[in-house]
Design a protein around this nucleic acid. Structure first.
Length: 194
DNA sequence: GGTAGGATGGGCT
DNA sequence: GCCCATCCTACCC
C-alpha cells in the first residue's frame, strides 16, 4: 500500500498545536496496517497541568522532553496504551495524542485485534482502540517515527481538511482548553463532533 | 438511544 | 493509597 512521503523531523519540530492540527489527514502506518488520523489532542508544556510533562522529567516522561518525531507510549488505566508523537524543539516538552483513525489498510488484521468492534467505525475510534488495532504497545515508546515500521506519511491524495476544535476528552485538569482537533463531519472520531 | 460500574497496574498528587 | 489522556458490558429507556 503506497502512501505519500514520510513526514520528516522538521514537521514535528513546531508548536504542539500546529503539529496537532497538521497531523489531521495524515496516515499513521504500522507494518501492514494504516489509518488516516482524524482526531488529535495537544498536550503542552508550561501551564498545561493535564500534560504528563507538567511535573518534570521522570523515567516515564523523558521522551516528551527529547527531540521531536519520536513516539511516547504509556499505559493508562492499567490496561490500555496510548500513542503520542513528540513535538517542539529538543528540550521543550509537548506532544500530540493520536485519538482516532479512519482505517485504510490491513482492516482484517485490525478486526482480528479488536474483536469487540462491531463496525469499521469502532476499530480505532479512541486512543486505546487505535493502539490495539495497529498493534502499538509500550515497546514503541521512544521509537523514531520518521523511519522504521511505525511512521506517519502524507496521504496518497492530499486534500485540505476542515478542522473542528473542542475541549479535550477524559481529563480533569485544564478540562476547558480547546486543544482537541478533529476532521469535521468525519464519522471515525471518538466522542463529540463539535 | 443512553449511562453506570468494573477491570487493572503503573506513577506519583 | 489514590489517581488516572479508557473500554466494554449490562441494563435501562
Amino acid at each position: 500500500m503506497a502512501f505519500g512521503r514520510i513526514l520528516k523531523r522538521e514537521f514535528y519540530q513546531r508548536p504542539t498545536v500546529t503539529v496537532a492540527r497538521d497531523l489531521l489527514g495524515k496516515v499513521l502506518v504500522h507494518g501492514a496496517t494504516a489509518g488516516i488520523i482524524v482526531e488529535t489532542e495537544a498536550y503542552l508544556g508550561g501551564d498545561d497541568l493535564a500534560s504528563h510533562s507538567a511535573r518534570g522529567i521522570t523515567s516515564r516522561t523523558r521522551v516528551i522532553f527529547g527531540p521531536p518525531g519520536y513516539a511516547y507510549v504509556y499505559l493508562v488505566y492499567g490496561m490500555y496504551e496510548c500513542l503520542n508523537l513528540v513535538a517542539e524543539a529538543p528540550g521543550v516538552p509537548g506532544c500530540v495524542l493520536i485519538r482516532a483513525l479512519e482505517p485504510v489498510a490491513g482492516i482484517e488484521r485490525m478486526q482480528a485485534r479488536r474483536p469487540a468492534a462491531r463496525r469499521v467505525e469502532d476499530l480505532a475510534s479512541g486512543p486505546g482502540k487505535l493502539a490495539l488495532a495497529l498493534g502499538i504497545t509500550r515497546s514503541h515508546n521512544g521509537v523514531d517515527v520518521t523511519r522504521g515500521s511505525l511512521v506517519v506519511r502524507a496521504p496518497a491524495q492530499p486534500r485540505r481538511v476542515e478542522i473542528a476544535v473542542t475541549p479535550r476528552i477524559g481529563i480533569r485538569l485544564c478540562a476547558n482548553l480547546p486543544l482537541r482537533f478533529i476532521i469535521r463531519e468525519n464519522r471515525f472520531v471518538s466522542g463529540p463532533r463539535n
